[in-house]
Computed example of a mutant assay.
Amino acid sequence: MLHGVADDLLAWTRLLACDGELAKAEPKTLQDRVLHAPASLTHGSRRCWLNFPPTWPWTNQIVAIFACIQALPRPG
């Protein structure tokens, strides 16, 4: 059951937030590039920041995915 939920989340992320080659990528490719990114979580000014290394090849695409997700209208 949990595997199905994870597959659905990847499919919806690809549908709503990905463009270019990631929009057509297989779930395994999307998982390797986005979910396995070496990021660090930092705290400051009552906020949490997710920092990606600038040398990671897909940093710009990951940042674009997060921007698309944040730009979606709130449900309800």
Rank of each mutant, 00 (worst) to 15 (best):
Q61K: 05
R14F: 09
L30I: 15
C18I: 03
K28Q: 12
A25Y: 01
E26R: 07
A17R: 08
H43S: 14
L2W: 01
A37S: 13
I65F: 10
Q61Y: 00
N60A: 15
L50D: 06
I69P: 01
L41P: 05
E26H: 07
M1T: 01
R74W: 00
T13M: 15
A11K: 10
L72P: 02
T13S: 14
T42C: 01
L35P: 04
H36E: 11
T13R: 11
L22K: 09
N51Q: 08
W49R: 12
I69T: 01
L2Y: 08
F66T: 07
G20V: 05
I65T: 10
L16H: 04
A37N: 03
G44C: 06
D8V: 02
L10F: 09
D32G: 06
P73E: 15
C48Y: 06
H43P: 03
R47C: 13
P75S: 12
G4M: 02
I65E: 00
A25R: 05
D19A: 11
I62C: 09
P75V: 08
L10C: 07
C18F: 05
M1P: 00
M1V: 01
Q61I: 00
V5F: 14
R46A: 15
L72N: 05
P27L: 06
W12R: 15
V5S: 10
T42I: 01
T55R: 12
L9T: 03
G20A: 06
A23D: 03
Q61D: 14
F52G: 04
L41G: 09
T13E: 12
L10R: 13
L72R: 11
A67N: 05
Q61V: 00
A67M: 03
A67C: 02
A11S: 15
G20E: 03
D19P: 04
G20K: 00
K24H: 12
G76T: 07
P75F: 12
T59M: 14
K28E: 13
A71L: 00
T59P: 10
A17S: 14
L41V: 12
A64M: 02
L50R: 10
H43W: 13
P54L: 06
A39R: 10
C18E: 05
R47Q: 15
W12T: 12
P38T: 10
E26L: 04
A71E: 09
A11G: 12
W12E: 14
D19T: 14
S40C: 10
I62M: 13
W58F: 14
P27C: 02
P75K: 05
H43G: 14
F66G: 06
P57M: 07
L22S: 04
V34S: 06
N60D: 15
A6N: 07
G44R: 04
G76P: 04
W56F: 15
G76W: 06
A6P: 03
H36V: 00
L10G: 07
T59H: 14
E21A: 09
A67Y: 00
I65L: 13
L41Y: 09
S45T: 09
Q61R: 02
L72I: 08
L35V: 11
K28H: 08
A37R: 02
V5Q: 13
H3S: 14
C18G: 03
I62A: 12
G44Q: 06
G20P: 01
W58G: 02
L35W: 15
R46N: 14
W49Y: 14
L16G: 03
T55Y: 08
L72E: 07
C18P: 03
W58P: 00
T13N: 08
Q31V: 04
I62H: 08
T42Q: 04
V63T: 11
G4P: 01
C18D: 01
G44H: 06
